[in-house]
Design a protein around this nucleic acid. Structure first.
Length: 355
DNA sequence: GATTCGTGGTC
DNA sequence: TGACCAAGAAT
């Protein structure tokens, strides 16, 4: 038996006894009985899990499939409702692409997800990792899905000291050589589970690892230091102003953001650009704007944001130059991205109630 | 290959 | 408390 086969067999045996119970899974027992999970649920979970923790996804996934149980239901949903449901999860291009993908599958593919990696990867929001993961998990095809977990596990198993991202090609071929012809779907999920529960980024629990005796990184005493990564750039601080306006009838002045770019397609407060030194702009409506003491701080992937908040009561017949009024009964802070929710909370904390 | 794109948890 | 990190994709 080759080293690779021994690793795969040991990992699969460990998975049979230790697989995590997750709402989008059917579990190893069902898999061995030939039962596959619903491709719709696999696809949705994989998209939600992109750069997002299982803990954050679990409840959101359940709410989502309760509301839209299949791809046809999702394809028929209004954009604004899907974006609102995604609010707080981040990386909102995922929600836009999710809906675009659902509509293609429902309209052009008879509601069936493609049963090949290439076919899947041709759809919006499905890249190399997600295509391979769906192919393996939903259809049990021998594809190799390489995510952050797999990169870490493989870098340690084979003591790959070259830093990412340069090591990506080598890690990819090492990972592909591990995929067994039998039960490739469970192998994929086993790699994830090992990476998430034992071979963790910090303080890996090598004592509990089924692959410890087969691990090159452990043998060299460097497992916990792998994979090596290039240092990240510092985050600049950007500034801006957000305007929280409320009409006499209680309606809030909000604005749908452009479909592309940061928070694209999401609802938010009108405001300035967010730059290192923003220009002083005109408010979205004529009113007595006053500053709320303090500021809202929020950190995005590549910059810190410090937002000043201005508030104003707007007259009943207000005709704003930007944005749209959302009636008080229809306004839910939970429909906003987190930074916008913080702005609303800051305005309220500053004593603003509107009329 | 390098950038852009969110958020909440963790140490 | 601030930096790091998580089942990446699109450009």
């Amino acid at each position: 038996m080759t080293h690779e086969r021994r690793i795969a067999a040991t990992l699969l045996a460990w998975y049979d006894a230790n697989a995590r119970d997750l709402p989008w899974r059917t579990g190893p027992d069902a898999a061995r009985a030939g039962l596959r999970p619903d491709p719709y649920r696999v696809w949705l979970s994989e998209v939600m899990l992109q750069q997002t923790t299982v803990a954050a996804v679990r409840d959101r996934f359940l709410r989502f499939v309760e509301r839209w149980p299949d791809v046809a239901a999702l394809a028929a949903a209004p954009d604004a409702e899907v974006m609102a449901e995604w609010a707080g999860l981040g990386y909102y291009a995922r929600a836009r692409n999710l809906l675009a993908c659902a509509r293609i599958v429902a309209r052009d593919l008879d509601g069936q997800f493609p049963r090949s990696r290439a076919g899947l990867q041709a759809l919006p929001g499905i890249g190399p990792y997600t295509a391979a993961a769906i192919a393996a998990i939903a259809f049990d095809l021998p594809e190799c899905a390489v995510d952050g977990n797999v990169e870490r596990v493989v870098a340690r198993l084979f003591a790959v000291a070259e830093p990412l991202p340069a090591a990506r090609a080598r890690i990819g071929s090492l990972a592909a050589a591990l995929v067994p012809g039998d039960r490739p779907g469970d192998h994929t999920q086993a790699m994830m589970d090992l990476g998430a529960t034992i071979c963790t980024p910090r303080n890996p629990d090598c004592d509990a690892c089924p692959l410890r005796a087969l691990c090159g990184g452990h043998a060299r005493g460097i497992a916990a230091d792998l994979p090596r990564k290039a240092p990240k750039a510092a985050k600049p601080v950007r500034r801006g102003i957000a305007y929280v306006g409320r009409r006499a009838d209680g309606a809030w002045l909000l604005e749908r953001r452009p479909a592309r770019g940061l928070l694209g397609g999401m609802l938010g407060w009108p405001g300035t650009e967010w730059t290192v030194s923003p220009a002083r702009p005109a408010p979205p409506a004529r009113a007595e704007w006053r500053a709320v003491p303090g500021e809202v701080r929020h950190t995005f992937t590549h910059f810190h944001l410090a937002l000043s908040v201005m508030v104003a009561e707007l007259p009943a017949g207000a005709n704003p130059e930007r944005g749209e009024f959302i009636a008080s009964d229809h306004f839910r802070p939970a429909d906003l991205p987190t930074v916008m929710r913080k702005v609303h909370a800051h305005a309220l904390a500053g004593g603003f109630e509107g009329h």
